[in-house]
Nucleic acid binder design. Sequence first.
DNA 1: CGTCCGCTTGAATAGTTTCAATTGAAGTGG
DNA 2: CCACTTCAATTGAAACTATTCAAGCGGACG
Lengths: 243, 243
Amino acid sequence: MDQVRCAQCPLRKFEIFSGFDEDELEFTQSFKAGEMAVEAGSTLMLEGQPSPQIFTVLEGLGLRYKILECGRRQVLNFAMPGDLIGLHAAVMGEMGHSFEATTAMRLCVFNRADLWRLYRQQPARAYDVTWLAAVEEHFLGETLVAIGRRSALERVAWALARVHARLAAVGLDRNGLVPMPWRQQDLADALGLSLVHTNKTLQRLRREGLARWSDGALLVPDREALATLAGIESPLPPRRPLI
Amino acid sequence: MDQVRCAQCPLRKFEIFSGFDEDELEFTQSFKAGEMAVEAGSTLMLEGQPSPQIFTVLEGLGLRYKILECGRRQVLNFAMPGDLIGLHAAVMGEMGHSFEATTAMRLCVFNRADLWRLYRQQPARAYDVTWLAAVEEHFLGETLVAIGRRSALERVAWALARVHARLAAVGLDRNGLVPMPWRQQDLADALGLSLVHTNKTLQRLRREGLARWSDGALLVPDREALATLAGIESPLPPRRPLI
DNA sequence: CGTCCGCTTGAATAGTTTCAATTGAAGTGG
DNA sequence: CCACTTCAATTGAAACTATTCAAGCGGACG
């Protein structure tokens, strides 16, 4: 399990940055239970089920969502390399949402039971986990503002700008083009809009030259312009713990 | 700093439940920097500002919110005794939202700088903090579903049922009557609705005998009925860490 | 070749917002 | 003690945004 392959895993990345002694390094490696590859379309964790594992995204894209009895679905967020998935289940006993792989994914797997050991033996790593949870909470708060207080046009612009920024931040930007493998229905479910209205709003952004999303790729010529339309203040939260 | 006065503070409560040795107890007490009383209407932390402190609500009610340039406001949640406030700022450097005391409040104050010390010296307490963050995230997820995928009637019913359940859980229920000091505008901003529509929806619930909110108090004769209308699955998350 | 799935389109409908004005209670100052 | 102001709750009507329904289109796949 070399450093390079695990570069996207936040729990390993920090390790590289912070410089620990041999014992700690060895421990973190033992905390990692293994890697896992899943194919596109597979459901990793189901709401209400206890999940014995925690994941970290190494490669590929997915989405976290909740479903109401009547079939309505709310996408909580789009998962990208570097994201920690399943802390909920680890800490609270069961998953609060479901997780689906949109593309094929490669994941870093940790055993839930080891988390407590990590807290006891590796406080710096424990702090990192808390930091990841705080970032996640921060994102959810921003999403809440978008869905609660923005118009459809602003919401879609906001979502595209946000996805673009996040994917660019993990190095998936090629001249303004980033992978965007989700369906329009996924975006609609993420923004609390209907599919039809989402479609029409996307067309409008395309017509105005602000964003072009087709064939699984998103092109944003000028992210500033898009972000202004969406009314975004802060581009992205900091990337690493502060301690 | 006796146990009783701090009973509502989660970081102290756990202490009582878990049974630590004398050293640990003493340390946690030193982690607490003091208590603070604020009057109704005061703003505790402002979005974008670095906050040197973390708070825990001992008494009183408040709300967390974000404001957009154009004046639109989104209430993230209603703060109640037992809630941890400001972990964001502690971990990420600055607040991601503002906090306002709706009633007079009494708070437990911790120094941001001490958090890292807590992680190093008190893993069990660090785990508790992560648990609180996970619970918070869980709540935000539920709110997202409500705002994104529920009708106005369902949203209002959901919010009232949720507030009622949470306040009852901290012992503020008197025969189905709980304090509800917020304004209709606050509820509207929490649910992504306009004030007018929120008002009309509240009237409808009142007319149908499901919930009566007036003069700063909320009466819910049958929480089950209200929850069914709102489409709530899980009543409340667990109350204490599992380890 | 037929079916499935995701995207697109138009029209009708419904839910929600916005505007504008009123009421009642509480607080202020002359 | 009476204007006068303020603030939250309330009401009705008009305007609009977004949803729902229904249908068509094209590519992928067996």
